[in-house]
Every structure is written in C-alpha cells, then in structure tokens.
Design a protein around this nucleic acid. Structure first.
Length: 279
DNA sequence: AAACAAACCTGTGCGC
DNA sequence: TGCGCACAGGTTTGTT
C-alpha cells in the first residue's frame, strides 16, 4: 500500500513528532512483525535510546539511534505508524508500541502483518537487512538526473517499462499506483520496451517520475477507499483525487478525452492505461 | 534475462 | 442476510 510518497509523508511526521524523543519502553504483541530478529532484540535495542533522525530509502524508513544502531520499519501492504497520547486505546492489530518520553506513544499497526520492525547495527546491514544495501536510486532522496534514467534503461533494453519502474533494485520507491500514474503522465505504454525510448522520451519519463512523486508528496500521498494509508496523525492524503488512471478502469481518459482507461493484469498486478494517449 | 505464479496474511466488497 | 470468491498499496522465492 504505501509507496514512496506515503512513506515520505510518514517520515516527515516522524521528523516532527519522534526525532529527539527517548524511547522509554517497548511492548511487542505479534512476534511475526519482529521476525527478522526477535522481540527481545527489538526491546533491548530500543529501550532507553534517543531517536536521532528519520530517513527514508525507497519504501524503507531508517531511524538512527544514539546507541549507534538503527531502527528500520517497512510498512509493506497494510502497515501504519501512528502517534497517540500515552494510554490511548490502541486499534486492533497494534503489534508494537513504543512509549516515548514526551507523554506520547508510537504504534506500529498492521492487519496483514507483512510489515516489519527491526533494530540492527549498521555494520551488520548485509547480514540482517541485505535488501537495504541493494536498493536502487531513490528519485527523491538522491540526485536523480535524466542521464541516470538513461543508464537504467540501457542496462535492461528488453524489459518493459512498468516492471522496470517497479523493480526496487533499479529505482527505489515506485509502487503500483505511481508506476501507472507516471507512465500515463509520460504518455508511454506500460509494456513498451526500455530500449524503444529516444532521448526526448527518456526526458519526458524522467520529468514524469519527479513530477508525479513530488505532487503526490505535496498532497500527502494517496488514501484509497479502505483508508488503510494514513499519516502519523491518522490523516489521509488527497492525491487519489488526482489519479488519472489508477483505479479508473472503464472511465474515459481525462487527459485526451478520446480513449477509455484499460485495466489489464501483468505480473499479477492491475495495470491501468489509456490506449489512445499512451504509446 | 525476464516473465510468471505462489507465498506470506487479513479485510472488504461484490455477485448470487 | 449469508456465503464464497476476487482482490488489495509489497517483496521474496522458485519455476518456466
């Protein structure tokens, strides 16, 4: 569920409400969300520590601690981070509660339990969270130029654009909603091979990536009908109102006014595009 | 190399 | 109203 814009919105909330706070106590409910290590490792690694910063790489949140270790949170499909006053009634599926020194609590809530919370020593990143070390370029957090994208496309010439955008080892942070929205903005079909883009179209795709993600961040991300994504304070985003294709299968294309939005399934993911203005 | 399916889970919405 | 099925923002693993 949460993609780069949603995770970035959560990160900003953490920077405002959690950075600088000391974790006084940690409670772990379901062990599945701490499966990477253990409940003891999380409790021992967090208790008494001050959160120094809130960083993000792709969809991964990384919070350095004053112990030299780092807290990593991935929300996967249905995870939420929420802050609330100490003692407030916790929602169902609250699997981790961190009691902070300012009278608040930080909760990790996740019905599907795909998400996870782990504290690790950055020196052991390869052993504990190897995927973190293999993330591709972050189009917002890193300097991401048109030539970076050109190099990426040249590296996998036969690959279709959408799977390439979704590959976290290549570009980190784009998920199913924003891949579809970006390709629509760039007027490119999702199944188009990477090698088929000339210099001008590479530039258009680069601009679409930066613009769509930037606008989505400005809107606080996308909150769909089930309201599963909310920010740290429990508020939804508004970028879903600006979706041109995602979730709009069967509607007329609002960009060209001529085509209808098609929904097909590729790689098990719903893919939405306009067959008229996306080529 | 790359496309695909299945797996991990729970909740929701839809057709009948 | 109730039941069963399809489907969901992600990622890994194993198979063609």
């Amino acid at each position: 569920m949460p993609e780069l814009p949603e995770v970035e919105t959560v990160r900003r909330g953490l920077a405002e409400h959690v950075v600088g706070r000391r974790v006084e106590r940690v409670e772990v409910g379901r062990l599945r969300v701490v499966r990477r290590t253990s409940a003891e490792a999380l409790v021992d690694g967090l208790s008494g520590c001050v959160v120094l910063a809130a960083d993000r790489r792709g969809k991964y949140l990384r919070l350095p601690l004053d112990s030299g270790e780092e807290l990593m949170v991935h929300l996967r499909m249905s995870g939420q981070l929420l802050v609330a006053p100490r003692g407030a009634v916790r929602p169902p599926h609250t699997h981790v509660a961190m009691i902070l020194d300012d009278g608040s609590e930080l909760w990790f809530v996740d019905p599907r339990t795909f998400g996870e919370v782990v504290v690790f020593d950055p020196a052991d990143v390869e052993a504990v969270v190897p995927e973190l070390a293999r993330l591709g370029i972050d189009p917002i957090a890193d300097r991401f130029e048109r030539d970076d994208l050109r190099a990426i496309l040249r590296r996998s010439p036969r690959r279709a654009l959408k799977p390439l955008l979704l590959d976290q080892h290549v570009i980190a942070g784009i998920g199913n909603i924003y891949a579809d929205e970006i390709l629509h903005r760039a007027r490119l079909r999702p199944d188009r091979p990477a090698s088929s883009l000339d210099r001008r179209r590479v530039g258009e795709l680069h601009r679409a990536i930066v613009a769509v993600l930037g606008e989505a961040i400005a809107a606080g991300g996308s909150t769909l009908g089930d309201a599963q994504y909310v920010d740290l304070m429990g508020d939804g985003g508004s970028y879903q109102d600006e979706h041109r294709v995602y979730g709009r299968g069967g509607e007329r294309c609002s960009t060209c006014g001529r085509g209808w939005i098609q929904r097909v399934v590729t790689g098990g993911r719903g893919t939405h595009f306009c067959g008229v203005c996306q080529r």
